[in-house]
Amino acid sequence: MIEARFRTLSVAATAALALSLTSIRSQAEPAFGFELETDVTYAKGKITTDGKVTERELKLDVYKPAVDKGAAARPAVILIHGGGFQRGGRRQAPYKEDGAVHSRMEDYARLLAPEGYVCFVIEYRLAPQLPEPETALDADWLLPMEEDLTDAGMRRVNYARSSLKLPPLEGEEGKTVVWKTILSAAEDLRKAVEYVRASAKEYNVDPERIALGGHSAGAATVINTTFGLDTPVAAVFPLSPPVSAIDVDKAIGASDSTPTLLVVSQNDEPAVREKVPVITKKMRDLGANYELVWVPGFPHFYPTGAVSLSDDATRMSVGERVTKFLDEHLKGAGPKETK
């Protein structure tokens, strides 16, 4: 009798605690400088299920500055996660490697939203879903698949797949799956930009002040979307990009002036170290508006608090670097906020 009553009380107490925590969580977000809206559908994309091409909804989460009433239209940042085009999402456990714990895109959103940015953390089609892009596999802004998908790049892809207990992608068939996923990711990010522009009034966003940021596969997608698919945005910050698929010589020309912050870690992946110099040389030759910084002591994964160094002799955390870059290129470009 006593035990039964105790169990009943325990269940009731647990339910009450859960309800209380839910309430605290909903109130805590504004206290930390942002409000959160989850599971917003921004587009659809084609995938292959049981041998048939179907469509799936693509979702995003919105991190909005907590105090937005009376504010002028704000700058926006669209954030896209990494994961070798195989894994990841809008809300996930941090990646870990060589003792380093990685900051996720939602961590960047929590950093930037209190600073006045409306942040959109998006998901996109991944290789295990077998996406079908609309872009031709030999579009004129692309490198040949066999030339671009190096052994180093495929090793990273299969490293990500091993964490999902999926078999490695091998041979031409495996490379084609990766290639289609790379193109689909760029299309999805472009759709996210179009969605944010179309929803500018709803989210109190200035459609002329949208930046893109991402890490690893997400960073490559930022580059492909901006320069390959010619998606006009105000600024981009690719973090450790493998620069996959894009033919830099064809896709980046004298008319491309999108401010770009490139971040590379000291012990980054070979696929990153091999290809970032290609895009920086092209940008330097064109006199483009870019900055290259590096993160000493870290592998491919690093937190927002990691120190970054620049050739202009500045030393600051990655998070501070990204915030400063966005402040320079997105703030002050639109109408001032009303008091």
Rank of each mutant, 00 (worst) to 15 (best):
F237Y: 13
L292V: 02
R315E: 13
V157T: 14
R284K: 13
A306S: 12
Y203H: 13
L126S: 09
D188G: 08
V53C: 10
P335V: 11
A152W: 02
S308H: 03
S308D: 09
S23H: 12
S23G: 15
G334K: 06
V222S: 05
Y95W: 11
E269F: 12
Q266D: 15
Q266A: 12
V196H: 07
A127V: 07
S308M: 08
Y302A: 07
M283G: 05
P232T: 06
V177E: 05
S20D: 11
I2C: 04
N158L: 05
I182E: 10
Y63M: 09
R74N: 08
P299R: 06
E97D: 15
K165V: 00
V222N: 05
L143H: 06
A4Y: 09
T8S: 15
T231P: 05
V322G: 07
A43S: 15
Y302C: 06
S240K: 10
E57F: 11
V318W: 02
A15Q: 14
V205A: 06
K69T: 14
I24F: 15
I78Q: 00
S26A: 13
P277V: 12
Y63L: 12
V307G: 05
S26F: 14
F85C: 07
G153T: 13
L309G: 00
L286Q: 06
Q86K: 09
K165R: 12
N204Y: 01
K59L: 13
A28C: 03
A15I: 10
L326N: 05
Q129E: 10
S23N: 08
V157I: 09
W141S: 02
V67T: 15
E172C: 00
R74L: 13
A271Y: 04
L9C: 06
A313F: 14
F32L: 15
K201G: 09
G171Y: 07
L9N: 08
G116M: 05
V53K: 12
K59E: 01
S23K: 12
R74F: 00
L19N: 13
T150V: 12
T338F: 11
P242D: 01
G297I: 07
R273C: 14
K282S: 08
P94A: 12
H102M: 12
T338Y: 07
K324C: 06
S265H: 03
T48D: 13
G89Q: 02
W141T: 08
Q92N: 14
G51Q: 10
F227G: 02
A200V: 04
D249N: 11
D268G: 00
G99S: 05
L326W: 03
Y63I: 09
Y302G: 04
I47H: 11
